[in-house]
Design a protein around this nucleic acid. Structure first.
Length: 568
RNA sequence: UGUCCUGUGGUGUAAUUGGCAACACGUCUGACUCUGGAUCAGAAGAGUCCAGGUUCGACCCCUGGCAGGACAACCA
C-alpha cells in the first residue's frame, strides 16, 4: 500500500488577515514589537453582538501576540452620550471576559490636547474658521463625482483665525455660526479631504466635562489623535471608515514626532439574519416600547443575550467562527444559536419540566405512595451525577404528548397505547376524562410495576418516552418562550419599508402555569437548565421566591413539528 | 459618470504567499433499543464573478470587463 499520509496536510490555522498583518509588522520590528489595540465605543447605547466581534478581535489580538488593549469611550458628541451607557459598556466587556485594567480612556480626556493641536494647525496655516452655515458648507463640498469650491473664509490670516477660534472656545458665538476646518483640498476625489470640519460649537453639557467646553471636536479630528496619544499601534475599525483613512493619516502626519504612528485597519462589521444591529434602531425599539429595555432577552445586545442565557464563552466562540474579513456578508443566526447549544450542552443540568400541563392519574398506583426515581444530571458528563425525582399517582405531562385520535406518525400517548415515563414506568392510557364542553381535563393510565426505571423485564418496547412531573411535588413556574424579534431575514435590508413592520408579534409567549421538578428549587447553583425535550432555559434575574421565571435560551430544533408537517 | 474597498459550495471562512480548493454551520443518510434536536459514522454540494495574459502549473501575479459595497452628517 502506498503511503499517502505524508501528503495529508496539517491545517495550520494562520489567523485572519489582521493577524497576518500584525505578524508582518512584528517580523519587521515595527514599533519595537509593541502592540496596543483599543476598543472605542461611543457611549450612546448598549453594546450588541456586533461589538462583541470587535471586542473579541481587539482583545484577542493582544492576547495572542502579547500586548494590551485600551478601553476608550469616544465621547465627542454630548447630545447622544450618557453615563448609563458607559456603565453598561464596562459591565458587558468584563462579562465577555476581557479586562482593560488601568487603561481606561475617554476622548474627552484629550479635549485640551486636541484644542492645542488645532491651534498648531491654525498657526501653520492648515486650519481656518469658517463663518458659513452647515447647508452652505455642505453645498460647497460638491459631490463624490464633482469637485467642491473653496470657502470665501478660507484665506483668513492666522491672527484672525486665532482670534475667532479663541472666541468660539469662549462661547462668544452661537451654535452653528462658526466651525473650524482643516485646509486641505476642496477638489480632492475623496470627499473627506475637502476641508473637513474639525470643531463645532455646541452648548450642550457633556456627560463628563459638563459645560467646560462649548466647542467639540468631530470624530475625524479626535479618533486618530487619541490613538496617537494613547500609543495605539493597530487601530481596528469597520469598513465604512476606509475612506476616512487618508484623513486619519493626514492628521497623524501633522502630529507625529518620530517613527511611531498608529495604523488604521478596517474589517467587515457583523450582520446577522433576522436581526437588526444599528444602535439607532435598537434605541427606537427600546424607546417606543417594542421591547422591555436594552436587556430584553429578544435584543441582540450583550445584556439581552446574557439575560437570555447566552454564555460569554458561546459568544466568544461565535466571534471566532464568523472570522474577520473585508467582505460585507451576513452570518446566519443559527450559527450563534449553535454556539450556545454547544456550550450549554456540555455543562448544563438536565431537568424535567412541563410547559403545557395535562394531568395524568395512574389509577393502579397506590394512593399516597411516593417513589424517588434516579435521574441523570448530564449524559455528557458522568461526573455530574444523578438526582432523585419524586414520582406519585398524579403527574403532569405535556399536552402535546397526548392525542385522543392520533394521526399515523404520532407515537406518543393515546388511548390504549403504552409509553415510557422517563426514569419511571411504562404507562398505558385507559381512559380520557372530559368536561361538559368536551375538553380533555385528565387522562387515566395503568402502570406496569415491573417496568420501574424504564424497562420492562419481558423486553417489550415502547415507541416514546415522555417527560413528566409529579403533581404533588412540582414547583410552579412561569416560562417565557422567545422567538426571533424579526420574521424577515434581514429587516435592515428591506429598505422599502419600515423595519418595525417585520417585528414578529409572537416573539414573546408567556406560559404562566408551568411545572418543574422540585430539584430545580434546591439547585440555586444552577442558573441554566436543559429541560428534557424542550430546550435550554435559564432563570430570569427577575425571579423571586414566590415566582420562578425561566427564559428559553434556545429551543431544540423542532423535529416533531417537522414530522407533523410530513404527516400532513 | 470620481475615489476607495470587495467578489471562493446554501451561509461564514481557509488555502503553507503560484502546486489541481480545506474547515465550520446548515442539509441528507445511517447508528445509538430509557427521549434525542445531543453523540458517533458517512454522503451530497464550489472548480474560486467573467474574458484574456504570464507560467510546466494561478483562487493567488498582470490587463480589460462585470457585479456588489462605502463616501456628498456641524454623527460615530
Amino acid at each position: 500500500m502506498i503511503n499517502t499520509t505524508e501528503n495529508s496536510k496539517e491545517v495550520a490555522p494562520r489567523g485572519n488577515f489582521i493577524h497576518q498583518l500584525i505578524e508582518k509588522d512584528l517580523s519587521e520590528g515595527k514599533n519595537n514589537g509593541r502592540i496596543l489595540t483599543r476598543f472605542p465605543p461611543e457611549p450612546n447605547g448598549y453594546l450588541h453582538i456586533g461589538h462583541a466581534k470587535s471586542i473579541c478581535l481587539n482583545f484577542g489580538i493582544t492576547q495572542k501576540y502579547g500586548g494590551l488593549t485600551n478601553l476608550r469611550f469616544d465621547d465627542t458628541n454630548p447630545e447622544k452620550e450618557e453615563d448609563e451607557y458607559v456603565r453598561s459598556i464596562m459591565e458587558d466587556v468584563r462579562w465577555l471576559g476581557f479586562e482593560w485594567g488601568e487603561r481606561l480612556y475617554y476622548a474627552s480626556d484629550f479635549f485640551q490636547n486636541l484644542y492645542e493641536f488645532a491651534l498648531k494647525l491654525i498657526h501653520e496655516g492648515k486650519a481656518y474658521v469658517d463663518d458659513q452655515d452647515a447647508e452652505t458648507i455642505s453645498k460647497q463640498k460638491g459631490t463624490p463625482t464633482r469637485p467642491g469650491i473653496e470657502s470665501p473664509f478660507r484665506n483668513r490670516s492666522v491672527e484672525e483665525n486665532l482670534l475667532l477660534f479663541e472666541g468660539m472656545k469662549n462661547g462668544e458665538f452661537d451654535e452653528g455660526s462658526k466651525v473650524l476646518r482643516a485646509k486641505i483640498d476642496m477638489s480632492s476625489p475623496n470627499m473627506h479631504m475637502r476641508d473637513p470640519i474639525l470643531y463645532r460649537i455646541m452648548k450642550t453639557p457633556h456627560h463628563r466635562t459638563g459645560d467646560k467646553w462649548v466647542i467639540y471636536p468631530l470624530y475625524d479630528f479626535a479618533h486618530g489623535q487619541c490613538d496617537y496619544w494613547e500609543g495605539i499601534t493597530h487601530s481596528v475599525c469597520t469598513l465604512e471608515f476606509e475612506v476616512h483613512r487618508p484623513l486619519y493619516d493626514w492628521f497623524i502626519d501633522q502630529l507625529k514626532e518620530n517613527e511611531y504612528r498608529p495604523r488604521q485597519i478596517e474589517f467587515a462589521r457583523l450582520n446577522l439574519t433576522y436581526t437588526v444591529m444599528s444602535k439607532r434602531k435598537l434605541l427606537e425599539l427600546v424607546k417606543d416600547g417594542y421591547v422591555n429595555g436594552w436587556d430584553d432577552p429578544r435584543m441582540p445586545t450583550i445584556s439581552g443575550l446574557r439575560r437570555r442565557g447566552y454564555t460569554p464563552a458561546s459568544i466568544r466562540n461565535f466571534a471566532e467562527r464568523v472570522g474577520v474579513t473585508k467582505v460585507e456578508g451576513t452570518s446566519d443566526v443559527t450559527l450563534l444559536e449553535h454556539s450556545v447549544r454547544e456550550d450549554l450542552n456540555k455543562t448544563v443540568q438536565r431537568v424535567m419540566g412541563v410547559i403545557n400541563p395535562l394531568k395524568v392519574v395512574i389509577t393502579n398506583y397506590p394512593d399516597g405512595l411516593v417513589e424517588q426515581m434516579e435521574a441523570i444530571n448530564n449524559p455528557e458528563n458522568p461526573d455530574a451525577g444523578t438526582r432523585l425525582v419524586p414520582f406519585s399517582r398524579e403527574i403532569y405531562i405535556e399536552q402535546e404528548d397526548f392525542m385522543e385520535n392520533p394521526p399515523n406518525k404520532f407515537f406518543r400517548l393515546s388511548p390504549g397505547r403504552e409509553v415510557r415515563l422517563r426514569y419511571a414506568y411504562f404507562v398505558k392510557c385507559t381512559n380520557v376524562i372530559k368536561d361538559e364542553v368536551g375538553n380533555i381535563t385528565e387522562v387515566h393510565c395503568n402502570y406496569d410495576p415491573e417496568s420501574r426505571g424504564g424497562n420492562s423485564p419481558d423486553g417489550r418496547k415502547v415507541k416514546a418516552t415522555l417527560h413528566w412531573v409529579s403533581a404533588a411535588h412540582a414547583v410552579k413556574a412561569e416560562v417565557r418562550l422567545y422567538d426571533r424579534l424579526f420574521s424577515v431575514e434581514d429587516p435592515a435590508g428591506q429598505k422599502d419599508r419600515d423595519f418595525k413592520e417585520y417585528l414578529n408579534p409572537d416573539s414573546l409567549v408567556v406560559m404562566p402555569n408551568c411545572f418543574v421538578e422540585p430539584s430545580v428549587k434546591v439547585s440555586p447553583a444552577f442558573s441554566h437548565f436543559q429541560f428534557e425535550r424542550l430546550g435550554y432555559f435559564n432563570v430570569d434575574p427577575d425571579s423571586t421566591a414566590e415566582k420562578l421565571i425561566f427564559n428559553r435560551t434556545v429551543s431544540l430544533k423542532d423535529s416533531w413539528s417537522k414530522e407533523k408537517e410530513k404527516a400532513i
